[in-house]
Design a protein around this nucleic acid. Structure first.
Length: 387
DNA sequence: CGGTTTTTTCCTGCTT
DNA sequence: GAAGCAGGAAAAAACC
C-alpha cells in the first residue's frame, strides 16, 4: 500500500473516530509504553534489531529515525488530537520519512497542515529535544518570532471568500474516496526543495492559506495593549513536553464527555495535566491574555490586514460591523484554541460587555456594535494608524 | 486556596 | 425558516 493510501486510511479512521458523537471510544493517545523487552543475546541479531526498531512507535524514538509509517502515525495522532479535518490535507505531501520531515521548516509544516502545522512543528521540536538533538532555545526563538515572519497571511485576493478551518466534518460516507475532499480543500502545494530549509511550499494559492489567516491575524494584535503579550503563549510551548499519560487521560475524558448528553452550562473541558499539552501555557509576559474586545479592536485597527472580516461604520464613534461573523468567531476560537467557537457564542460574550460599558448597544442593526467608554485603544488619537 | 472576573456553552424567546 | 439579538443560567478557566 502506498504511503498516501496509508495516510488516507489512517486519517479517515482518525476523523471517523474523532467525530462520532456518541461513542465511548477515545481516540488513541500515545500510551506509556515500555519498549519491547530485548534480551542481551538478541542484540546481535540483525533481524531482531530491525524488528525491534520497526516495533517502536514514533514517540519512542528520535524523529530523525522515523519511518514513513511513523511519520504517518505521527500525523494521524496530531490530526486526532486536534480534531483537525484530515480531508483538508494534500496527502502527497505527507509521504516522507523522519529525516525528510526534520528538514521541513515550520513554514512548510504550516503550509501543509494549516493551523495544525504549528503544533506539529512544536511536537517535532519537542520530540527532537526529548531525544537530545535539538536546542530548545532555537525553538523558543523560532516561536517567539513566529508572527513576525508571516506578514502576508491575510493578503488574499479581493473578494475571496474567507476560507475557514472546518475542524469538524463528519464524513457522510466513511468509504468515500478521501481524494475528493482533499481536492476540495487542498492544504498545500507541492513541496519543492529549498536551499535554506530543505523544503518549502511552492503553493501561493489562497486555498493553502486557510488557518494561516489566523496567524496573520494574531500577528496584528496590538502590541501597545498592556494586556496583550503579543505572541500569546507560543514561546512557552517550547517548554512543553509530551505527557502521554496525561493525554491518555484527556482522550478518555473526551470520550466520556461525548458519550453523554451535554448538561447545561459550560462543559468540563480538560482535566488537569491536559492543558499541559493541549492548552497553551500562560505566558508570563501576558498574564491576563487577550480579551475578546481587544481582539475585535485589533482586527479593526488593522484594516489592511483584516481581510474584510470587520469594518468601521463610524470610526469616530467607535461603531463597527462584523462582515464575516463566523470567520471572526473562528479566528477567536483559534486564538483561544477552541475549535467550536461560533458567532453565536462570541456574540454572547460581546453582549456581556454592554453592562460593563466596554460596548454600547446599537439597536436595530445586525452585526453592529459600538465601543463604549470603558474600551480603549481604538480611537484615532490612541492609535497611530490613520483610518 | 478561595473569591472574582471573563468567557464559554446552552437555552428560550423574540426580531429582522 | 434562517440568522441574529437578548439575556438567564451554569460552569470552566483565568486572574487576583
Amino acid at each position: 500500500m502506498s504511503a498516501t493510501n496509508d495516510l488516507s486510511s489512517i486519517l479517515t479512521d482518525a476523523n471517523w473516530t474523532m467525530y462520532q458523537i456518541c461513542t465511548n471510544e477515545p481516540v488513541s493517545a500515545p500510551p506509556v509504553l515500555a519498549p519491547p523487552v530485548m534480551r542481551e543475546s538478541q542484540l546481535s541479531n540483525t533481524q531482531f534489531a530491525a524488528d525491534f526498531l520497526g516495533s517502536l512507535k514514533w514517540y519512542q524514538m528520535a524523529p530523525q529515525c522515523w519511518t514513513k509509517q511513523n511519520v504517518l502515525e505521527w500525523i494521524s495522532y496530531h490530526v486526532e488530537e486536534s480534531k483537525f479535518d484530515a480531508s483538508m490535507l494534500n496527502m502527497t505531501n505527507c509521504s516522507m520519512d523522519g529525516s525528510v520531515l526534520c528538514q521541513l521548516s515550520r513554514e512548510t509544516l504550516v503550509s501543509i497542515f494549516g493551523s495544525l502545522g504549528e503544533r506539529m512543528y512544536q511536537s517535532l521540536q519537542e520530540q527532537k529535544a526529548k531525544y537530545g538533538t535539538d536546542d530548545l532555545n532555537t525553538t523558543y526563538d523560532l516561536l517567539n518570532n513566529l508572527f513576525d515572519e508571516f506578514p502576508d497571511f491575510l493578503s488574499v485576493s479581493g473578494g475571496e471568500e474567507f476560507k475557514l478551518l472546518k475542524t469538524v466534518i463528519v464524513p457522510e460516507d466513511k468509504t468515500n474516496d478521501s481524494s475528493v475532499s482533499a481536492d476540495r480543500l487542498n492544504m498545500g502545494g507541492a513541496l519543492t526543495p529549498s536551499s535554506d530549509n530543505g523544503y518549502e511550499s511552492g503553493s501561493t494559492s489562497p486555498d493553502s492559506l486557510d488557518s494561516s489567516h489566523s496567524r496573520g491575524m494574531l500577528s496584528l494584535l496590538n502590541p501597545s495593549s498592556p494586556e496583550y503579550g503579543g505572541s500569546d503563549s507560543d514561546p512557552e510551548l517550547s517548554d512543553l513536553q509530551f505527557s502521554f499519560s496525561a493525554k491518555e487521560f484527556i482522550k478518555a475524558e473526551q470520550g466520556e464527555l461525548k458519550a453523554c448528553k451535554r448538561s447545561r452550562g459550560r462543559p468540563r473541558k480538560l482535566s488537569r495535566g491536559s492543558e499541559y499539552f493541549i492548552e497553551a501555557k500562560k505566558n508570563k509576559h501576558n498574564p491576563r491574555g487577550a480579551h475578546l474586545w481587544e481582539f475585535i479592536r485589533d482586527i479593526l485597527i488593522h484594516p489592511e490586514q483584516n481581510n474584510g472580516l470587520m469594518r468601521w461604520e463610524d470610526r469616530r464613534e467607535g461603531v463597527f460591523k462584523f462582515l464575516k461573523s463566523e470567520a471572526v468567531a473562528q479566528l477567536w476560537g483559534q486564538k483561544k484554541k477552541n475549535s467550536s467557537m461560533t458567532y453565536e457564542k462570541l456574540s454572547r460574550a460581546m453582549r456581556y460587555y454592554y453592562k460593563r460599558e466596554i460596548l454600547e448597544r446599537v439597536d436595530g442593526r445586525r452585526l453592529v456594535y459600538k465601543f463604549g467608554k470603558n474600551s480603549s485603544g481604538w480611537k484615532l488619537g490612541e492609535v497611530g494608524v490613520g483610518m
